[in-house]
């Protein structure tokens, strides 16, 4: 048990430092363009999907994302991916897709290979990698 705890501890300390380059030493600039600009806080429809999705997202944006800062190494970020996934499929399938991607992208042992976007240097992992867009 102690060994497992030790491994977990070492993993948590080691990985955030060396894993993704964006998390490494970088000039900190709080004026950086943030994802928040493209956030849509409005509730357009009154459907169940819309309410659950928007509720979850707004909570996440307010309590986590804003405090944590714009340092997700992926584009679209997980929350943006969640919106795309639900819009492309439905709430349940979208949520499964989201968890699928979340598990893949945060897996430090066997991560998929991604290409960086030229502009932002972030790893590109769009919904198109998971579902065929434009299907029947």
């Amino acid at each position: 048990m102690r060994i497992i705890l030790l491994i977990v501890l070492i993993q948590t300390i080691a990985h955030p430092q060396v894993d993704w380059e964006r998390w490494g030493k970088k000039e900190i600039d709080y004026r950086k363009e943030s994802f928040s600009k493209s956030r849509d806080y409005s509730f357009d429809g009154l459907g169940v999907t819309e309410t659950i999705l928007k509720g979850a997202l707004i909570s996440y944006w307010t309590f986590f994302s804003d405090i944590d800062g714009d340092n997700c190494p992926f584009e679209p970020s997980c929350s943006a991916f969640f919106i795309d996934a639900v819009k492309t499929t439905n709430l349940i399938e979208g949520a499964l897709l989201f968890f699928d991607r979340f598990a893949r992208d945060t897996n430090p042992f066997n991560r998929r290979k991604y290409y960086r976007i030229v502009k932002s240097g972030r790893f590109y992992d769009p919904i198109g990698n998971y579902v065929k867009i434009g299907r029947d």
């Binding site: 290409y115 960086r116 976007i117 030229v118 502009k119 590109y124 769009p126």
Partner: peptide
Amino acid sequence: GELGFMGM
């Protein structure tokens, strides 16, 4: 194009 190589 998606990765940004078409308008570098």
